[in-house]
């Protein structure tokens, strides 16, 4: 049974998750008519910059996060940004959209200079998230759990982060067993996606390098969060 405290914790996280979304006009821009590969890249860069701002605002609302020491807050954001953004993109991508929009979005991503070897694992991940048909609560909690992963580089007070992540894992586990009574493996499948996300981190680093080679520029915020000079 989910306790009252757990219900309250989940509500705060879900409200923050719903409140901080990519601005509609930004999302619409992505679905407009065709652009060149260069303009696609600029659009996706602007989208990613928006996503980082949304990620930081969401994270500030996670109960207890702002009580962590400042350096660890920065280390957690930098360490989880790529995973949290892919998780968020996968959730947006798999959401029901007017027909035709999904392939416009997919087309735009495919024509933005991302190397093929990265494209496949990324779309496979989007598909694997889509197949779970996650509820908003599960999406919000899984994103918070990803951000509060203690073993990120440069995190010093692991225990303090674990004390925040544990209760979220506990309420997510209960939620999964309540919402998916006939699928005892569902919670494990969700956590399995976090493992998949880690591999995307590696591909993302490769992708940045290939973009850098073609002299693509990133915004200052992306350079900082992705540690790109």
């Amino acid at each position: 049974k989910i306790t009252k405290e757990q219900q309250a914790l989940m509500q705060v996280i879900v409200d923050a998750y719903n409140r901080h979304q990519i601005p509609q006009d930004m999302a619409k821009k992505l679905l407009q008519d065709q652009y060149s590969a260069e303009e696609n890249f600029l659009l996706l860069t602007e989208m990613a910059t928006n996503q980082v701002q949304v990620l930081v605002e969401f994270t500030k609302n996670i109960p207890g996060f702002l009580s962590l020491n400042h350096e660890d807050q920065i280390a957690l954001l930098k360490g989880s940004a790529v995973e949290a953004m892919f998780l968020r993109s996968a959730q947006v991508f798999s959401r029901k959209r007017p027909s035709g929009h999904t392939d416009v979005l997919e087309e735009r991503i495919r024509k933005s200079g991302i190397s093929e070897e990265f494209m496949t694992p990324m779309f496979n991940f989007y598909k694997s998230i889509g197949e779970l048909h996650m509820m908003q609560e599960e999406q919000a909690l899984l994103t918070a759990i990803t951000i509060l992963t203690p073993d990120r580089p440069y995190v010093r007070d692991h225990q303090a982060v674990e004390r925040l992540q544990e209760p979220m894992l506990d309420v997510l586990r209960k939620l999964c067993s309540l919402q998916h009574p006939h699928e005892p493996q569902y919670f494990a499948r969700l956590l399995g996606r976090l493992t998949e996300l880690r591999t995307l981190n590696h591909y993302h680093a490769e992708m940045l390098t290939s973009w850098r080679m073609n002299d693509h520029k990133f915004t200052p915020l992306l350079c900082e969060i992705w540690d790109v000079e």
């Binding site: 409140r19 701002q53 930081v56 605002e57 500030k60 609302n61 702002l66 400042h70 807050q73 920065i74 954001l77 930098k78 200052p220 915020l221 900082e224 969060i225």
Partner: peptide
């Protein structure tokens, strides 16, 4: 040292 944009975003009041 460039002022950290992340720090600025973190220090801004929540829900700005």
């Amino acid at each position: 040292e460039e002022p950290s944009l992340l720090k600025k975003l973190l220090l801004a009041p929540a829900n700005s």
